[in-house]
């Protein structure tokens, strides 16, 4: 059995160079005046917790939360129906397919649907509803995010549901559970690992995306990603940029920790089988 562990060796070497070392560099830049001066300093931290930045951070988290909740609400039924469908594997492809188009372009296409002279508004006008302000606001950004990240929620839940042991469901039914109870007592708890990885895959990109928000909000409001990008590419302050990246990462790790606990609880629960 020991030899089997070696399967992971090439990856672990790779991981040290391309995952651990870059993170170390970020930390290094955040706490020193690198590359010039390697003496430790906290000045970038105090610059980074400026109330203006924190307000933007809170807004980013709130929008990402809404987006994740919507993806879960929309995506779980899709995954469930796919897993129960006769040709679920084939149908699931149709839900992944849109990801094969560039997300910037898909987002841009939404602009032509939502804009004042766009398709939806032409429809509304034709129906006598009048023109509505659909683009360049928070709702447009959330819509764009849900659109872009929905497949990331569907796929892991579907993979999990599809692998579930049908005999467990039958056993629950034989023991007198109705359809709804089978779902809430068996299917749903067993699918938690899929749900957790779905939430992970949606929340993380949603909380930091800057391209989607920039296109759909028309640059009207900034998200946290915008500030980090700004520090690196326009302001040119890599040290503050690194500190802001660390703050973002800390918050994400915190929520991950919560979710990880949630995930492993259900795993232990499933272990009684």
């Amino acid at each position: 059995m020991r030899k089997l562990k070696l399967f992971a060796l090439p990856y672990i070497l790779w991981m040290v160079v391309f995952t651990v070392l870059p993170m170390f560099l970020i930390v290094y830049y955040a706490f020193t005046n690198a590359p010039g001066n390697s003496a430790p300093t906290l000045e970038h931290f105090f610059k980074a917790i400026d109330p203006m930045y924190m307000k933007i951070l809170l807004r980013s988290i709130w929008i990402a939360f809404l987006c994740t909740a919507l993806c879960l609400l929309l995506g779980y039924p899709v995954a469930f129906l796919l897993a129960r469908a006769r040709n679920g594997a084939v149908w699931s492809l149709f839900f992944i397919l849109p990801m094969w188009m560039n997300f910037l372009l898909r987002t841009y296409a939404w602009m032509s649907i939502l804009e004042n002279t766009g398709i939806l508004n032409s429809l509304f006008v034709a129906m006598g509803l009048g023109q509505m302000e659909l683009l360049y606001n928070e709702n447009a950004v959330i819509l764009g995010m849900v659109y872009n990240f929905l497949p990331f929620m569907i796929l892991p839940i579907y993979t999990n549901l599809q692998k579930q042991d049908v005999s467990l469901l039958e056993a629950a039914q034989d023991l007198g559970c109705n359809g709804w109870r089978v779902f809430t007592r068996v299917t749903l708890p067993l699918s938690m690992p899929g749900v957790v990885s779905g939430i992970t895959m949606v929340f993380m990109p949603a909380v930091t995306t800057f391209a989607i928000s920039r296109l759909l909000s028309g640059g009207k409001f900034m998200l946290f990603g915008d500030i980090i990008e700004q520090q690196y590419l326009s302001t040119g302050n890599w040290n503050v940029g690194s500190m802001l990246s660390l703050i973002m990462l800390a918050i994400i790790l915190l929520s991950m920790g919560l979710m990880g606990r949630f995930g492993s609880d259900t795993k232990d629960g499933g272990g009684m089988l």
């Binding site: 970020i26 990462l249 994400i252």
Partner: peptide, 26 residues
Amino acid sequence: VMNISYLPVINPDIVTGVSLMLLFIF
């Protein structure tokens, strides 16, 4: 190992991008 592996997933794309840029320059 899994926690470190998760890093590029949970890391915002910007942070991954920026950290790799720092690495390549380094």
